[in-house]
Amino acid sequence: MNPPEKKSLDLYAMTWRLPVIVWQTIFFVGPLLFMVAMSFFVVKNYRMVEAFEFTNWEKMLGRGYFWDSYLLTLGLASLSTVVAMLIAFPAAYALAFKVSDSARRWAIFLLIIPFFTSYLVRTFSWYVILAESGVINAILGYVGLGPYTMLNTKFGTIVGYMTLTLPLVVILQTFALANIDTRLVEAAHNLGCKPFATVWRVVIPLAKTGLIIAALFCFILSFGDFVAPYYLGGSKPPTLPILIIDTTKSGQQWPRAAVVAIMMMVTLFAVAFAALTAAYHKRGRS
């Protein structure tokens, strides 16, 4: 038996990894640590003063409205994820299995186009469509329905979240489904598996990793979005990103806003960890 080889430091590999490590340290880890430290600072005369006090944590976590916002944000982001996944799946399935390569390429290109324009502008364009005097209510009016209030409601917020996330979710789902070995799908059909059962028992399990990552991205984007709940939801009631704005706007309480931000990041870390564990969990392995 040979003794285990001592691994030498691969300078070449390290050189290529270094920029990413340096970048992440300067622009992610550094600010994150500063934000944690800032949550213990105090504000005097609208100016942050370095300190190590727990008052911001006590004040924010002790307020009922913080937890109301927290649960609301969690609920809306979860709902957005479910809705986006359900709407995107048939489209992604069709793009992956039912259309030609050329049509798929065009569809992906068209799904990327929304990212060329500002999300804020796209959100504002919903005003024209969702308003009581807007396009949808005008059409419904012809058949004697409405008008319905859609702006400044949770429905409006979800529409905004879809504007932000749906194209990305369709793209990610399409890539996940397109990478499936289609021979396994054909085998399921040959063995008498019905179409819906094939999707449920073969397609989805095979595309599980990609689908979970699509859902995760949708959740992360919705959870941290300020624009949709503010402009289409009427800030009624406020989600956590709006609470951050409110907290900084009045009294310049950046340390308290840092508490909210840390709570959001902890939640996202937990969700991402759980999602990735589920995504890469192999059946039969512990």
């Binding site: 307020r63 409205y65 800030s235 009631p237 406020p238 409110d246 009045s250 009294g251």
Partner: peptide, 14 residues
């Protein structure tokens, strides 16, 4: 101002 702002946040969440 903080008292008023706190109440405002509470009101928005009510």
């Amino acid at each position: 101002l903080e008292d008023w702002n706190d109440f405002w946040s509470e009101y928005k969440n009510a």
